[in-house]
Design a protein around this nucleic acid. Structure first.
Length: 194
DNA sequence: AGGATGATCGTCT
DNA sequence: GACGATCATCCTC
């Protein structure tokens, strides 16, 4: 009998290894940064992935080289920040869903119009607002140490996995990764690993 | 040119 | 838990 034992794709491995890395945003207003505590993988051939419909003007970055910023507007109100993840020509990416704020809290509070630290970057739209990330970052390199970049880091404790959040298609796939026990992780508390 | 869609968020009950 | 805001994008005339 045929058994499919595919290794985790590059996208899946990236989504997991991004937990603990630090996203830094430098602007005229000041520096803001946070530890990545939650991600979701969107794989090649995945009906929930923006690349699924083929290459378009919006999703072109997903088909480019890996580790570029893919930023899009959702519901006309919120930006979502992703990394392209597969080799040039293949469309896939990783959504960053939540950060633990570590620098520039006051600026984040100002941009978000709220005080509570826990809510500043808990959710993909919120973290983009807190770091002032918009579509102008789409396609940007993330290792340039200019405007927006990523620094290596390790998770504090276990990285767990669950179903993805908020999708209308293929939500059942367990492609969400988060740092166990971290209060800055988004999503309903009941979304435990199993 | 017009309609449907959406990886969200804040507000309300 | 439910609902509406709001608009870039894509698809179909």
């Amino acid at each position: 009998m045929a058994v499919s034992l595919a290794l985790p794709s590059a996208t899946e491995a990236l989504a997991e290894s991004l937990i603990g890395c630090v996203l830094v945003r430098e602007s005229r207003e000041g520096l803001t940064a946070g530890r990545i505590v939650e991600t979701e993988a969107y794989l090649p051939g995945d009906p929930a992935c923006h690349a699924y419909i083929g290459k378009t003007a919006r999703n072109a970055t997903l088909f480019g080289p890996p580790h570029r910023a893919y930023v899009y507007l959702i519901y006309g109100t919120s930006y979502c920040f992703n990394l392209s993840s597969e080799r040039d020509g293949e469309g896939a990416g990783v959504l960053v869903r939540a950060l633990e704020p570590i620098e520039g809290l006051a600026l984040m509070q100002h941009r978000r119009g709220i005080e509570a630290a826990r809510d500043l970057c808990r959710g993909p739209g919120r973290l983009c607002a807190a770091l002032d990330i918009d579509r102008s970052f789409d396609g940007a390199e993330l290792f340039t140490r200019e405007r927006l970049w990523l620094e290596p880091g390790q998770p504090q404790g276990k990285v767990r996995r669950s179903r993805r959040i908020g999708l209308t298609r293929a939500a059942h796939r367990r492609l969400r990764f988060y740092e166990a026990g971290n209060p800055f992780v988004s999503g309903p508390a009941r979304l435990s690993p199993s």
